[in-house]
């Protein structure tokens, strides 16, 4: 794992909370949407607005050695259908435990006014070399 990126901002993303994607999300989880998915309606707080996997390369790890080990969301409010969000991702921490290396990537999403909507935090675990 590339430890030089600890503390660094490693990417940003612009996302729109699209109704069709929220429907896909509910369908994947085999859930009934709670109501109409009109612009302005509340979207699921755990809706995958981030694409953190796309920045795994910055950490110099591969999928044959690493897994998503945990997730945390802290929210000021839920996102809204049709809303445009900007997410900035930072590697907040890299640490070792036993024969594993952990990294936490935190993405802070703000709305078009610059107000924080939610922070999505992903923990990745990687097996160290020589460990099976």
């Amino acid at each position: 794992m590339n430890r030089n990126v600890e503390g660094a901002i490693i990417g940003s993303v612009e996302v729109t909370v699209e109704a069709v994607k929220v429907r896909d999300y509910y369908q994947a989880l085999e859930l009934d949407p709670p109501g109409p998915l009109e612009p302005g309606e509340v979207a699921p707080v755990a809706f995958p607005v981030d694409n953190l996997n796309a920045v795994w390369g910055v950490l110099d790890i591969s999928h044959d050695r690493s897994l998503h080990a945990g997730h945390a969301i802290s929210a000021q409010r839920a996102p809204r259908i049709g809303e445009r969000l900007t997410g900035v991702t930072r590697v907040t921490r890299i640490w070792d435990k036993a024969a594993l290396t952990f990294a936490t990537l935190s993405t802070r999403y703000t709305d078009t006014r610059g107000d924080e909507v939610l922070v999505s935090e992903m923990t990745i675990v990687e097996r160290q070399e020589g460990q099976e």
């Binding site: 989880l29 699921p44 707080v45 755990a46 998503h68 969301i73 802290s74 409010r77 839920a78």
Partner: peptide, 28 residues
């Protein structure tokens, strides 16, 4: 892991409302 995490979030949403979820942290 986010599938089960999504079900947890949905359980909380239906009980308390999505706008009332302040945080959800889970270890897989």
């Amino acid at each position: 892991g986010m599938v089960s995490y999504g079900w947890l979030a949905e359980m909380l949403t239906r009980a308390y409302g999505a706008d009332n979820i302040r945080s959800l942290a889970a270890r897989f």
